[in-house]
Design a protein around this nucleic acid. Structure first.
Lengths: 241, 241
DNA sequence: GTCTATAACCGGATAGAC
DNA sequence: GTCTATCCGGTTATAGAC
Protein backbone atom coordinates (compact mmCIF):
# COMPACT_ATOMS: atom_id res chain seq x y z
CA UNK A 1 0.00 0.00 0.00
CA UNK A 2 2.83 2.32 0.82
CA UNK A 3 4.44 1.42 -2.48
CA UNK A 4 1.25 2.09 -4.34
CA UNK A 5 0.89 5.47 -2.73
CA UNK A 6 4.43 6.34 -3.63
CA UNK A 7 3.91 5.38 -7.22
CA UNK A 8 0.74 7.35 -7.48
CA UNK A 9 2.32 10.35 -5.84
CA UNK A 10 5.12 10.33 -8.37
CA UNK A 11 2.66 10.24 -11.20
CA UNK A 12 0.59 13.11 -9.94
CA UNK A 13 3.73 15.04 -9.23
CA UNK A 14 4.63 15.12 -12.86
CA UNK A 15 1.09 16.03 -13.81
CA UNK A 16 1.05 18.78 -11.23
CA UNK A 17 4.25 20.22 -12.59
CA UNK A 18 2.92 20.35 -16.12
CA UNK A 19 -0.33 21.76 -14.89
CA UNK A 20 1.25 24.56 -12.94
CA UNK A 21 3.63 25.28 -15.80
CA UNK A 22 0.63 25.86 -18.04
CA UNK A 23 -1.04 27.95 -15.38
CA UNK A 24 1.96 30.18 -14.76
CA UNK A 25 2.50 30.69 -18.45
CA UNK A 26 -1.14 31.50 -19.01
CA UNK A 27 -1.44 33.99 -16.16
CA UNK A 28 1.74 35.69 -17.27
CA UNK A 29 0.53 36.01 -20.84
CA UNK A 30 -2.94 37.13 -19.78
CA UNK A 31 -1.27 39.80 -17.71
CA UNK A 32 0.90 40.95 -20.60
CA UNK A 33 -1.48 40.79 -23.51
CA UNK A 34 -4.97 40.38 -22.08
CA UNK A 35 -7.29 37.39 -22.14
CA UNK A 36 -8.68 37.54 -25.66
CA UNK A 37 -5.29 38.25 -27.19
CA UNK A 38 -3.75 35.20 -25.59
CA UNK A 39 -4.54 32.10 -27.61
CA UNK A 40 -4.41 28.59 -26.27
CA UNK A 41 -1.93 27.84 -29.03
CA UNK A 42 0.35 30.61 -27.83
CA UNK A 43 0.18 29.40 -24.24
CA UNK A 44 1.02 25.85 -25.32
CA UNK A 45 3.87 27.05 -27.50
CA UNK A 46 5.43 29.24 -24.82
CA UNK A 47 5.17 26.40 -22.33
CA UNK A 48 6.71 24.07 -24.94
CA UNK A 49 3.74 21.76 -25.05
CA UNK A 50 1.22 20.66 -27.60
CA UNK A 51 -2.16 22.30 -27.80
CA UNK A 52 -3.89 19.03 -26.97
CA UNK A 53 -1.79 18.64 -23.88
CA UNK A 54 -2.84 22.02 -22.57
CA UNK A 55 -6.46 20.95 -23.02
CA UNK A 56 -5.72 17.75 -21.14
CA UNK A 57 -5.12 19.83 -18.02
CA UNK A 58 -7.55 22.68 -18.54
CA UNK A 59 -10.65 21.55 -20.31
CA UNK A 60 -11.39 25.06 -21.50
CA UNK A 61 -9.81 28.46 -21.60
CA UNK A 62 -12.28 29.61 -18.98
CA UNK A 63 -11.00 27.11 -16.50
CA UNK A 64 -7.71 28.93 -16.41
CA UNK A 65 -9.56 31.81 -14.80
CA UNK A 66 -10.44 29.88 -11.69
CA UNK A 67 -6.81 30.15 -10.71
CA UNK A 68 -7.13 33.89 -10.79
CA UNK A 69 -9.85 33.89 -8.15
CA UNK A 70 -7.85 31.69 -5.83
CA UNK A 71 -4.58 33.50 -6.22
CA UNK A 72 -5.85 37.02 -5.73
CA UNK A 73 -7.99 35.98 -2.80
CA UNK A 74 -4.94 34.58 -1.05
CA UNK A 75 -2.95 37.73 -1.74
CA UNK A 76 -5.80 39.85 -0.46
CA UNK A 77 -5.95 37.91 2.80
CA UNK A 78 -2.25 38.41 3.42
CA UNK A 79 -2.61 42.16 3.04
CA UNK A 80 -5.89 42.52 4.88
CA UNK A 81 -5.32 40.71 8.13
CA UNK A 82 -2.70 43.08 9.59
CA UNK A 83 -4.63 46.06 8.28
CA UNK A 84 -7.77 45.03 10.12
CA UNK A 85 -5.95 45.01 13.45
CA UNK A 86 -5.51 48.75 13.21
CA UNK A 87 -9.18 49.50 12.59
CA UNK A 88 -11.91 49.36 15.21
CA UNK A 89 -14.86 51.00 13.50
CA UNK A 90 -16.99 49.21 10.94
CA UNK A 91 -16.40 52.00 8.48
CA UNK A 92 -12.64 51.88 8.89
CA UNK A 93 -12.53 48.11 8.58
CA UNK A 94 -14.73 47.98 5.52
CA UNK A 95 -12.75 50.71 3.87
CA UNK A 96 -9.48 48.86 4.50
CA UNK A 97 -10.82 45.61 3.07
CA UNK A 98 -12.20 47.24 -0.05
CA UNK A 99 -9.19 49.39 -0.84
CA UNK A 100 -6.82 46.50 -0.40
CA UNK A 101 -8.98 44.33 -2.63
CA UNK A 102 -8.67 46.75 -5.51
CA UNK A 103 -4.94 47.12 -4.91
CA UNK A 104 -4.55 43.35 -4.98
CA UNK A 105 -6.26 42.81 -8.29
CA UNK A 106 -4.75 45.92 -9.89
CA UNK A 107 -1.92 44.05 -11.67
CA UNK A 108 -4.47 41.89 -13.45
CA UNK A 109 -6.61 44.76 -14.68
CA UNK A 110 -5.97 44.01 -18.32
CA UNK A 111 -7.66 40.66 -18.29
CA UNK A 112 -10.08 40.99 -15.42
CA UNK A 113 -12.78 41.97 -17.90
CA UNK A 114 -12.79 38.46 -19.30
CA UNK A 115 -13.49 37.13 -15.86
CA UNK A 116 -16.76 38.97 -15.56
CA UNK A 117 -17.85 38.15 -19.03
CA UNK A 118 -17.84 34.48 -18.14
CA UNK A 119 -19.01 35.08 -14.61
CA UNK A 120 -22.15 36.79 -15.83
CA UNK A 121 -23.00 33.85 -18.03
CA UNK A 122 -25.78 31.75 -16.50
CA UNK A 123 -24.50 28.42 -17.70
CA UNK A 124 -20.88 28.98 -16.84
CA UNK A 125 -19.46 26.76 -14.12
CA UNK A 126 -17.37 29.74 -13.10
CA UNK A 127 -20.30 31.90 -12.13
CA UNK A 128 -19.33 32.96 -8.60
CA UNK A 129 -22.94 33.58 -7.60
CA UNK A 130 -24.24 30.13 -8.34
CA UNK A 131 -21.54 27.98 -6.79
CA UNK A 132 -22.18 28.44 -3.10
CA UNK A 133 -19.86 25.61 -2.23
CA UNK A 134 -16.84 27.21 -3.88
CA UNK A 135 -14.26 27.42 -1.08
CA UNK A 136 -12.80 30.68 -2.39
CA UNK A 137 -16.19 32.30 -2.23
CA UNK A 138 -16.93 30.94 1.22
CA UNK A 139 -13.65 32.28 2.53
CA UNK A 140 -14.35 35.59 0.92
CA UNK A 141 -17.72 35.82 2.68
CA UNK A 142 -16.09 34.69 5.90
CA UNK A 143 -13.71 37.63 5.63
CA UNK A 144 -16.65 40.02 5.77
CA UNK A 145 -17.95 38.20 8.84
CA UNK A 146 -14.61 38.96 10.48
CA UNK A 147 -14.89 42.59 9.45
CA UNK A 148 -18.16 42.75 11.37
CA UNK A 149 -16.93 40.73 14.36
CA UNK A 150 -14.08 43.06 15.10
CA UNK A 151 -16.17 46.22 14.81
CA UNK A 152 -17.81 47.90 17.76
CA UNK A 153 -21.36 48.15 16.48
CA UNK A 154 -24.70 46.79 17.60
CA UNK A 155 -26.49 45.03 14.79
CA UNK A 156 -29.69 43.00 15.22
CA UNK A 157 -29.21 39.26 14.82
CA UNK A 158 -31.32 38.86 11.69
CA UNK A 159 -29.38 41.52 9.81
CA UNK A 160 -26.06 40.39 11.25
CA UNK A 161 -26.62 36.91 9.83
CA UNK A 162 -27.08 38.14 6.27
CA UNK A 163 -24.61 41.00 6.24
CA UNK A 164 -21.47 39.03 5.33
CA UNK A 165 -23.16 37.73 2.22
CA UNK A 166 -24.58 41.14 1.38
CA UNK A 167 -21.21 42.79 1.77
CA UNK A 168 -19.67 40.15 -0.46
CA UNK A 169 -22.23 40.95 -3.15
CA UNK A 170 -21.46 44.63 -2.66
CA UNK A 171 -17.77 43.93 -3.12
CA UNK A 172 -18.48 42.05 -6.36
CA UNK A 173 -20.35 45.11 -7.54
CA UNK A 174 -17.36 47.33 -6.83
CA UNK A 175 -15.11 44.98 -8.79
CA UNK A 176 -17.53 45.14 -11.69
CA UNK A 177 -17.30 48.93 -11.58
CA UNK A 178 -13.51 48.80 -11.40
CA UNK A 179 -13.36 46.63 -14.50
CA UNK A 180 -15.18 49.31 -16.44
CA UNK A 181 -13.30 52.16 -14.83
CA UNK A 182 -10.84 53.79 -17.22
CA UNK A 183 -10.08 56.85 -15.08
CA UNK A 184 -6.38 57.50 -14.25
CA UNK A 185 -5.20 55.17 -11.50
CA UNK A 186 -8.82 54.09 -11.12
CA UNK A 187 -9.43 57.04 -8.83
CA UNK A 188 -13.10 56.83 -9.62
CA UNK A 189 -13.31 53.38 -8.11
CA UNK A 190 -11.56 54.51 -4.96
CA UNK A 191 -13.93 57.46 -4.69
CA UNK A 192 -16.87 55.15 -5.19
CA UNK A 193 -15.58 52.90 -2.43
CA UNK A 194 -15.23 55.86 -0.08
CA UNK A 195 -18.73 57.09 -0.77
CA UNK A 196 -20.45 53.72 -0.71
CA UNK A 197 -18.75 52.63 2.48
CA UNK A 198 -19.83 55.87 4.12
CA UNK A 199 -23.38 55.32 2.94
CA UNK A 200 -23.40 51.65 3.86
CA UNK A 201 -22.28 52.49 7.37
CA UNK A 202 -25.22 54.87 7.74
CA UNK A 203 -27.68 52.46 6.15
CA UNK A 204 -26.63 49.67 8.48
CA UNK A 205 -27.22 51.95 11.45
CA UNK A 206 -30.56 52.97 10.05
CA UNK A 207 -31.63 49.41 9.35
CA UNK A 208 -30.59 48.41 12.85
CA UNK A 209 -33.04 50.86 14.38
CA UNK A 210 -35.95 49.04 16.12
CA UNK A 211 -38.28 51.37 14.29
CA UNK A 212 -37.20 49.75 11.01
CA UNK A 213 -37.85 46.21 12.10
CA UNK A 214 -40.83 45.34 9.82
CA UNK A 215 -39.27 46.63 6.63
CA UNK A 216 -35.95 45.08 7.54
CA UNK A 217 -37.61 41.70 8.05
CA UNK A 218 -39.26 42.00 4.68
CA UNK A 219 -36.03 42.95 2.93
CA UNK A 220 -34.15 40.10 4.57
CA UNK A 221 -36.81 37.65 3.50
CA UNK A 222 -36.21 38.83 -0.04
CA UNK A 223 -32.49 38.25 0.33
CA UNK A 224 -33.21 34.70 1.47
CA UNK A 225 -35.30 34.15 -1.60
CA UNK A 226 -32.52 35.36 -3.86
CA UNK A 227 -30.01 33.13 -2.15
CA UNK A 228 -32.28 30.13 -2.54
CA UNK A 229 -32.62 30.82 -6.23
CA UNK A 230 -28.85 31.08 -6.59
CA UNK A 231 -28.42 27.81 -4.72
CA UNK A 232 -30.71 26.06 -7.19
CA UNK A 233 -28.58 27.26 -10.06
CA UNK A 234 -25.68 25.46 -8.49
CA UNK A 235 -27.55 22.16 -8.60
CA UNK A 236 -28.39 22.64 -12.26
CA UNK A 237 -24.86 23.46 -13.30
CA UNK A 238 -23.47 20.30 -11.74
CA UNK A 239 -23.92 18.30 -14.94
CA UNK A 240 -21.87 20.72 -16.99
CA UNK A 241 -18.67 20.78 -14.94
CA UNK B 1 -33.18 64.67 -58.79
CA UNK B 2 -36.48 62.88 -58.63
CA UNK B 3 -35.05 60.21 -60.88
CA UNK B 4 -31.99 59.83 -58.71
CA UNK B 5 -34.05 59.44 -55.62
CA UNK B 6 -36.14 56.83 -57.30
CA UNK B 7 -33.15 54.87 -58.38
CA UNK B 8 -31.60 54.95 -54.97
CA UNK B 9 -34.83 54.06 -53.27
CA UNK B 10 -35.24 51.01 -55.49
CA UNK B 11 -31.77 49.82 -54.69
CA UNK B 12 -32.08 50.26 -50.96
CA UNK B 13 -35.45 48.61 -51.08
CA UNK B 14 -33.88 45.45 -52.29
CA UNK B 15 -31.17 45.72 -49.68
CA UNK B 16 -33.76 46.28 -47.00
CA UNK B 17 -35.64 43.20 -48.08
CA UNK B 18 -32.54 41.06 -47.90
CA UNK B 19 -31.66 42.55 -44.54
CA UNK B 20 -35.03 41.88 -43.00
CA UNK B 21 -35.06 38.42 -44.51
CA UNK B 22 -31.83 37.66 -42.68
CA UNK B 23 -33.18 39.17 -39.49
CA UNK B 24 -36.44 37.23 -39.55
CA UNK B 25 -34.64 34.01 -40.28
CA UNK B 26 -32.14 34.62 -37.52
CA UNK B 27 -34.71 35.50 -34.85
CA UNK B 28 -36.76 32.49 -35.80
CA UNK B 29 -33.79 30.17 -35.55
CA UNK B 30 -32.58 31.72 -32.30
CA UNK B 31 -36.04 31.12 -30.94
CA UNK B 32 -36.08 27.50 -32.05
CA UNK B 33 -32.55 26.39 -31.26
CA UNK B 34 -30.98 29.06 -29.08
CA UNK B 35 -28.28 31.56 -29.86
CA UNK B 36 -25.14 29.45 -29.61
CA UNK B 37 -26.69 26.58 -31.55
CA UNK B 38 -27.58 28.79 -34.47
CA UNK B 39 -24.60 29.29 -36.74
CA UNK B 40 -24.19 32.14 -39.18
CA UNK B 41 -23.81 29.51 -41.88
CA UNK B 42 -27.16 27.98 -40.98
CA UNK B 43 -28.89 31.35 -41.01
CA UNK B 44 -27.44 32.12 -44.43
CA UNK B 45 -28.41 28.74 -45.76
CA UNK B 46 -31.99 28.90 -44.49
CA UNK B 47 -32.34 32.39 -45.96
CA UNK B 48 -30.87 31.04 -49.23
CA UNK B 49 -27.94 33.42 -49.17
CA UNK B 50 -24.21 33.14 -48.97
CA UNK B 51 -22.44 33.50 -45.66
CA UNK B 52 -20.60 36.56 -46.93
CA UNK B 53 -23.85 38.20 -47.81
CA UNK B 54 -25.20 37.79 -44.30
CA UNK B 55 -22.07 39.51 -43.03
CA UNK B 56 -22.56 42.29 -45.52
CA UNK B 57 -25.76 43.25 -43.69
CA UNK B 58 -24.88 42.33 -40.12
CA UNK B 59 -21.25 42.89 -39.38
CA UNK B 60 -21.30 40.43 -36.51
CA UNK B 61 -23.56 37.87 -34.91
CA UNK B 62 -24.00 40.19 -31.94
CA UNK B 63 -25.52 42.86 -34.11
CA UNK B 64 -28.44 40.58 -34.76
CA UNK B 65 -29.28 40.91 -31.09
CA UNK B 66 -29.94 44.62 -31.29
CA UNK B 67 -33.08 43.74 -33.21
CA UNK B 68 -34.23 41.74 -30.22
CA UNK B 69 -34.13 44.77 -27.91
CA UNK B 70 -36.11 46.89 -30.32
CA UNK B 71 -38.72 44.31 -31.13
CA UNK B 72 -39.53 43.22 -27.61
CA UNK B 73 -39.59 46.80 -26.39
CA UNK B 74 -42.22 47.65 -29.00
CA UNK B 75 -44.29 44.61 -28.10
CA UNK B 76 -44.04 45.53 -24.44
CA UNK B 77 -45.30 49.06 -25.11
CA UNK B 78 -48.32 47.77 -26.97
CA UNK B 79 -49.30 45.56 -24.07
CA UNK B 80 -48.47 48.00 -21.32
CA UNK B 81 -50.26 51.18 -22.33
CA UNK B 82 -53.83 49.90 -21.99
CA UNK B 83 -52.90 48.05 -18.80
CA UNK B 84 -51.63 51.23 -17.17
CA UNK B 85 -54.95 52.94 -17.67
CA UNK B 86 -56.54 50.53 -15.25
CA UNK B 87 -54.04 51.13 -12.47
CA UNK B 88 -53.89 54.22 -10.27
CA UNK B 89 -51.49 53.21 -7.52
CA UNK B 90 -47.74 53.17 -7.98
CA UNK B 91 -47.63 49.60 -6.81
CA UNK B 92 -50.31 48.48 -9.26
CA UNK B 93 -48.70 50.28 -12.16
CA UNK B 94 -45.24 48.99 -11.47
CA UNK B 95 -46.54 45.47 -11.08
CA UNK B 96 -48.36 45.66 -14.41
CA UNK B 97 -45.28 46.92 -16.24
CA UNK B 98 -43.00 44.29 -14.78
CA UNK B 99 -45.30 41.34 -15.30
CA UNK B 100 -46.01 42.30 -18.87
CA UNK B 101 -42.32 42.72 -19.54
CA UNK B 102 -41.60 39.16 -18.54
CA UNK B 103 -44.56 37.91 -20.55
CA UNK B 104 -43.32 39.78 -23.59
CA UNK B 105 -39.84 38.32 -23.57
CA UNK B 106 -41.02 34.85 -22.57
CA UNK B 107 -41.01 33.42 -26.14
CA UNK B 108 -37.34 34.31 -26.46
CA UNK B 109 -36.25 32.70 -23.22
CA UNK B 110 -34.01 30.18 -24.94
CA UNK B 111 -31.61 32.72 -26.33
CA UNK B 112 -32.01 35.60 -23.92
CA UNK B 113 -29.01 34.29 -22.03
CA UNK B 114 -26.76 35.18 -24.92
CA UNK B 115 -28.00 38.72 -24.75
CA UNK B 116 -26.75 39.20 -21.24
CA UNK B 117 -23.47 37.53 -21.87
CA UNK B 118 -22.64 40.20 -24.41
CA UNK B 119 -24.40 42.94 -22.48
CA UNK B 120 -22.24 42.37 -19.45
CA UNK B 121 -19.10 42.70 -21.52
CA UNK B 122 -17.47 46.10 -20.93
CA UNK B 123 -16.26 46.57 -24.48
CA UNK B 124 -19.39 45.43 -26.22
CA UNK B 125 -21.24 48.07 -28.21
CA UNK B 126 -24.43 46.34 -27.12
CA UNK B 127 -23.94 47.02 -23.44
CA UNK B 128 -27.25 48.64 -22.50
CA UNK B 129 -25.74 50.46 -19.54
CA UNK B 130 -23.05 52.32 -21.39
CA UNK B 131 -24.98 53.58 -24.39
CA UNK B 132 -27.11 56.30 -22.87
CA UNK B 133 -28.10 57.59 -26.28
CA UNK B 134 -29.65 54.30 -27.36
CA UNK B 135 -33.23 55.24 -28.28
CA UNK B 136 -34.63 51.92 -27.09
CA UNK B 137 -33.13 52.48 -23.69
CA UNK B 138 -34.35 56.05 -23.50
CA UNK B 139 -37.87 55.00 -24.35
CA UNK B 140 -37.65 52.27 -21.79
CA UNK B 141 -36.68 54.77 -19.08
CA UNK B 142 -39.38 57.12 -20.31
CA UNK B 143 -41.91 54.36 -19.72
CA UNK B 144 -41.00 54.31 -16.04
CA UNK B 145 -41.44 58.07 -15.90
CA UNK B 146 -44.99 57.54 -17.16
CA UNK B 147 -45.56 54.91 -14.52
CA UNK B 148 -44.72 57.53 -11.91
CA UNK B 149 -46.66 60.34 -13.56
CA UNK B 150 -49.93 58.48 -13.53
CA UNK B 151 -49.62 57.34 -9.92
CA UNK B 152 -51.12 59.23 -7.02
CA UNK B 153 -48.06 59.54 -4.80
CA UNK B 154 -46.05 62.45 -3.44
CA UNK B 155 -42.36 62.06 -4.12
CA UNK B 156 -39.77 64.76 -3.49
CA UNK B 157 -38.32 66.34 -6.63
CA UNK B 158 -34.77 65.09 -6.19
CA UNK B 159 -35.88 61.48 -5.88
CA UNK B 160 -38.54 61.84 -8.54
CA UNK B 161 -35.90 62.94 -11.05
CA UNK B 162 -33.77 59.83 -10.58
CA UNK B 163 -36.49 57.26 -10.08
CA UNK B 164 -37.19 56.43 -13.74
CA UNK B 165 -33.56 55.54 -14.25
CA UNK B 166 -33.42 53.60 -10.99
CA UNK B 167 -36.53 51.65 -11.88
CA UNK B 168 -35.07 50.85 -15.27
CA UNK B 169 -31.96 49.45 -13.59
CA UNK B 170 -34.23 47.48 -11.26
CA UNK B 171 -36.08 46.07 -14.26
CA UNK B 172 -32.79 44.99 -15.85
CA UNK B 173 -31.99 43.19 -12.63
CA UNK B 174 -35.28 41.31 -12.78
CA UNK B 175 -34.56 40.28 -16.36
CA UNK B 176 -31.17 39.02 -15.29
CA UNK B 177 -32.89 36.92 -12.62
CA UNK B 178 -35.42 35.62 -15.12
CA UNK B 179 -32.66 34.47 -17.45
CA UNK B 180 -31.27 32.31 -14.69
CA UNK B 181 -34.66 31.16 -13.49
CA UNK B 182 -35.36 27.53 -14.37
CA UNK B 183 -38.44 27.10 -12.15
CA UNK B 184 -41.64 25.90 -13.86
CA UNK B 185 -43.30 28.74 -15.80
CA UNK B 186 -40.76 31.06 -14.18
CA UNK B 187 -42.97 31.35 -11.15
CA UNK B 188 -40.00 32.34 -9.11
CA UNK B 189 -39.48 35.44 -11.20
CA UNK B 190 -43.12 36.44 -10.84
CA UNK B 191 -42.88 35.95 -7.10
CA UNK B 192 -39.74 38.01 -6.99
CA UNK B 193 -41.48 40.78 -8.93
CA UNK B 194 -44.39 40.73 -6.48
CA UNK B 195 -42.14 40.92 -3.46
CA UNK B 196 -39.72 43.50 -4.81
CA UNK B 197 -42.48 45.78 -6.06
CA UNK B 198 -44.09 45.62 -2.65
CA UNK B 199 -40.80 46.46 -0.99
CA UNK B 200 -39.93 49.17 -3.51
CA UNK B 201 -43.26 50.83 -2.88
CA UNK B 202 -42.51 50.95 0.83
CA UNK B 203 -38.94 52.08 0.33
CA UNK B 204 -40.03 54.92 -1.93
CA UNK B 205 -42.45 56.08 0.74
CA UNK B 206 -39.77 55.80 3.36
CA UNK B 207 -37.22 57.68 1.29
CA UNK B 208 -39.77 60.40 0.60
CA UNK B 209 -40.11 61.12 4.30
CA UNK B 210 -38.62 64.55 5.18
CA UNK B 211 -36.84 62.84 8.05
CA UNK B 212 -34.77 60.90 5.49
CA UNK B 213 -33.66 63.92 3.50
CA UNK B 214 -29.91 63.88 4.32
CA UNK B 215 -29.36 60.22 3.63
CA UNK B 216 -31.52 60.44 0.51
CA UNK B 217 -29.43 63.32 -0.78
CA UNK B 218 -26.30 61.33 -0.19
CA UNK B 219 -27.65 58.25 -1.94
CA UNK B 220 -28.82 60.29 -4.91
CA UNK B 221 -25.42 61.90 -5.22
CA UNK B 222 -23.98 58.41 -5.46
CA UNK B 223 -26.42 57.52 -8.22
CA UNK B 224 -25.30 60.62 -10.12
CA UNK B 225 -21.72 59.47 -9.80
CA UNK B 226 -22.56 56.05 -11.18
CA UNK B 227 -24.43 57.53 -14.09
CA UNK B 228 -21.52 59.83 -14.91
CA UNK B 229 -19.19 56.87 -14.95
CA UNK B 230 -21.53 54.97 -17.27
CA UNK B 231 -21.74 57.98 -19.57
CA UNK B 232 -17.95 58.04 -19.86
CA UNK B 233 -17.95 54.42 -20.96
CA UNK B 234 -20.17 55.42 -23.81
CA UNK B 235 -17.59 57.90 -25.06
CA UNK B 236 -14.86 55.28 -24.92
CA UNK B 237 -16.81 52.69 -26.82
CA UNK B 238 -17.53 55.01 -29.70
CA UNK B 239 -14.42 53.97 -31.60
CA UNK B 240 -15.36 50.31 -31.52
CA UNK B 241 -18.79 50.47 -33.08
C1' DG C 1 -21.28 52.08 -55.94
C1' DT C 2 -24.51 48.39 -54.43
C1' DC C 3 -24.79 43.69 -53.75
C1' DT C 4 -23.48 38.61 -53.71
C1' DA C 5 -20.50 34.64 -53.68
C1' DT C 6 -16.39 31.78 -52.80
C1' DA C 7 -12.43 30.69 -50.38
C1' DA C 8 -9.61 31.23 -46.70
C1' DC C 9 -8.13 32.51 -41.92
C1' DC C 10 -8.12 32.02 -37.10
C1' DG C 11 -8.58 30.11 -32.71
C1' DG C 12 -11.25 27.16 -29.44
C1' DA C 13 -12.11 22.45 -28.96
C1' DT C 14 -11.88 17.18 -29.83
C1' DA C 15 -10.41 12.33 -31.55
C1' DG C 16 -7.57 9.03 -31.48
C1' DA C 17 -2.77 7.14 -32.07
C1' DC C 18 1.29 6.31 -29.37
C1' DG D 1 0.07 11.87 -20.34
C1' DT D 2 1.43 13.59 -24.70
C1' DC D 3 1.13 14.28 -29.49
C1' DT D 4 -0.79 15.13 -34.37
C1' DA D 5 -4.49 15.90 -37.19
C1' DT D 6 -8.87 17.62 -37.67
C1' DC D 7 -13.31 19.76 -36.81
C1' DC D 8 -16.13 23.64 -36.31
C1' DG D 9 -17.93 28.17 -36.50
C1' DG D 10 -17.16 33.30 -36.32
C1' DT D 11 -14.94 36.41 -39.24
C1' DT D 12 -12.42 38.47 -43.24
C1' DA D 13 -10.46 39.15 -47.99
C1' DT D 14 -11.53 39.47 -52.31
C1' DA D 15 -13.34 38.87 -56.82
C1' DG D 16 -16.79 39.76 -59.66
C1' DA D 17 -22.00 40.56 -60.92
C1' DC D 18 -25.61 43.91 -61.38
Amino acid sequence: MSAMRKKKSVKTQKGDQTKSLILETALEMFHERGYEQTTMRAIAEKASLSLGNAYYYFSSKEHLIQAFYRRTHEQHLVAVIPALEKQQTLKGRLLAVMRLKIETIEPYYEFAGALFKTAANPGSPLNPFSDGSDPVRQQSIELFAQVLDGAKVRIPKDLRAELPYLLWVYHMGIILFWIHDKSPKHRRTYRLVDHTVDLLDKLISLASNPFMRPIRKQALKLVEELKDAAADLETQNEGEK
